[in-house]
């Protein structure tokens, strides 16, 4: 078993990322519509922007995949002409990196709902960090800022954690994940029987 990502892993990661790149394009008008409602209601849909990382990780289960997927999804959106423009690259990189750090912390050994929820929350933290510089969110009234952080974190946990987990669970039923996952210890044990 060789370490690192093979061509198959990279291609599958990119394709997942591009699927979500398209989803992001469809999500943009929805998010902007919610933004028009005010009081940070839009933040409740913010978690969708981090989902590429957790889904790719859950499917492929290899180091580096989360960062690569999130960055590729952001680049894909940029190439498709997203109205958010160049900032996507920085958001994508930071969000992917923070999610990747969570997976690194568990040594890429755990694939449960808690870990992906944590990764989602970490991505939310990354996006807030960048918004601090870009959007001066530190200059919002305190209650308003708390509302924004709360909504964004909740949505990250619900969408990137719970929803992504069940999405991949349903994908596992189709058998497609067996194509791309590395052989686990149970697989080797099964051979010995």
């Amino acid at each position: 078993m060789s370490k690192g990502l093979k061509l198959t892993d990279i291609l599958v990661t990119f394709v997942i990322a591009i699927v979500f790149g398209i989803v992001y394009q469809l999500w943009t008008p929805f998010y902007e519509f919610l933004g028009g409602l005010g009081l940070h209601i839009d933040q409740l849909s913010y978690g969708m922007w981090f989902i590429a990382a957790t889904v790719a990780y859950l499917i492929i289960r290899k180091p580096g995949v989360a960062l690569l997927a999130e960055l590729a999804a952001a680049s894909g959106s940029l190439i498709l002409g997203s109205p958010y423009g160049v900032e996507l690259l920085i958001y994508g990189f930071l969000q992917g990196l923070f999610a990747e750090l969570v997976f690194f912390a568990v040594r890429y050994k755990r694939y449960d709902i808690l870990v992906v929820s944590l990764a989602g929350a970490a991505s939310a933290a990354a996006s807030l960090l960048f918004d601090w510089y870009k959007g001066y969110i530190g200059d919002l009234e305190a209650w308003n800022l708390a509302l924004m952080i709360g909504f964004r974190t909740i949505s990250a946990i619900v969408i990137c954690g719970v929803f992504a987990y069940f999405l991949v669970k349903a994908l596992e039923a189709t058998g497609v994940t067996n194509l791309v996952r590395p052989a686990s210890k149970e697989d080797y044990d099964a051979l010995d029987k």
Binding site: V12, V15, I16, L171, T174, V176, L179, V180
Partner: peptide, 17 residues
């Protein structure tokens, strides 16, 4: 999403192979 994702992954895998 399930059929779209699973078919895309299968196709990507075939392309890589």
């Amino acid at each position: 999403s399930i059929p779209m994702l699973s078919q895309s992954i299968r196709r990507a895998h075939r392309v890589a192979v």
